[in-house]
C-alpha cells in the first residue's frame, strides 16, 4: 500500500487548483529520535563481546536501512511535488495543542510534586486543576469530584493495595490518626 505514492501517475495539483500535497516534516520526529537512539545504542555497546551486541546491531542496521528508504522517499516526494514541508500535524491546531500541553504540564507537575505532597494530595491537585481548566466545572463540583476520586484512590491504592508512594502530609496524618 505504501507503494501508492511511488506510482508514476502523480495528479498534477496545479491542474486541480488545490493543494493535494501530503505534509512531511512532522513525521520526521520519530525517525530522528530513532536515528539518535540507534547511534547511541551502538556507541554504548562498542566494547562488548559479540553475544551482547549481535541482536542490537542487526536491528540497528535494519533501522538505518528503513530510515534511509524513508529519506529517499521524502526527497523524491518533495522534488516531484507530492509532498510539502509542514509541521502542523504535530499540533493540529493551537487551541487543541494548548489544551493538550496544559493537561500534560499538569500531569508532569503532579509527578514532580508527588515526593512532597504524596499520592492523595498531588492527585487531588491534578484532578482539580484539570477539571477546572479543561472541563470548566463549577468550583464546588470540581472540588467534590476531585476529592472523592483522590480519596477513593487513597483507599484503593494506598490503604488496600499498599502501593509504596512516598507519604505526603495527608498519608502521614491518616497514619497518625488511625494507624493505617
Amino acid at each position: 500500500m505504501s507503494a501508492t505514492s511511488d506510482r508514476p501517475e502523480p495528479p498534477d495539483p496545479a491542474l486541480r487548483g488545490q493543494d493535494t500535497r501530503e505534509p512531511t516534516g512532522g513525521d520526521w520526529v520519530i525517525p530522528v529520535i530513532a536515528l539518535a537512539f540507534t547511534t547511541y545504542y551502538l556507541v554504548s555497546i562498542k566494547d562488548l563481546v559479540w553475544e551482547a551486541k549481535i541482536a542490537a546491531v542487526f536491528v540497528a542496521v535494519m533501522l538505518y536501512l528503513l530510515i534511509g528508504i524513508f529519506a529517499v522517499k521524502t526527497v523524491f516526494g518533495l522534488k516531484r511535488g507530492s509532498l510539502k514541508i509542514d509541521f502542523s500535524p504535530l499540533w493540529e491546531n493551537w487551541p487543541l495543542f494548548r489544551t493538550r500541553a496544559l493537561l500534560f504540564g499538569l500531569a508532569t507537575a503532579s509527578v514532580a510534586f508527588l515526593p512532597w505532597l504524596g499520592f492523595t494530595l498531588s492527585t487531588f491537585g491534578f484532578l482539580l486543576a484539570a477539571f477546572l481548566w479543561l472541563e470548566r466545572m463549577p468550583v464546588k463540583t470540581a472540588v467534590i469530584t476531585a476529592g472523592a476520586l483522590a480519596l477513593s484512590g487513597y483507599v484503593l491504592f494506598i490503604a488496600i493495595l499498599r502501593t509504596a508512594f512516598p507519604p505526603g502530609p495527608f498519608e502521614l496524618a491518616v497514619r497518625a490518626l488511625t494507624g493505617i
Binding site: 520519530i30 530513532a34 535494519m62
Partner: peptide, 16 residues
C-alpha cells in the same frame, strides 16, 4: 508499511 516497520524496529531496540 515503512512507518510501521520503523516503529517496530524502534520498539525492538527499546526492548533491547
Amino acid at each position: 508499511m515503512l512507518k510501521g516497520l520503523i516503529a517496530g524496529g524502534l520498539g525492538l531496540l527499546i526492548g533491547a
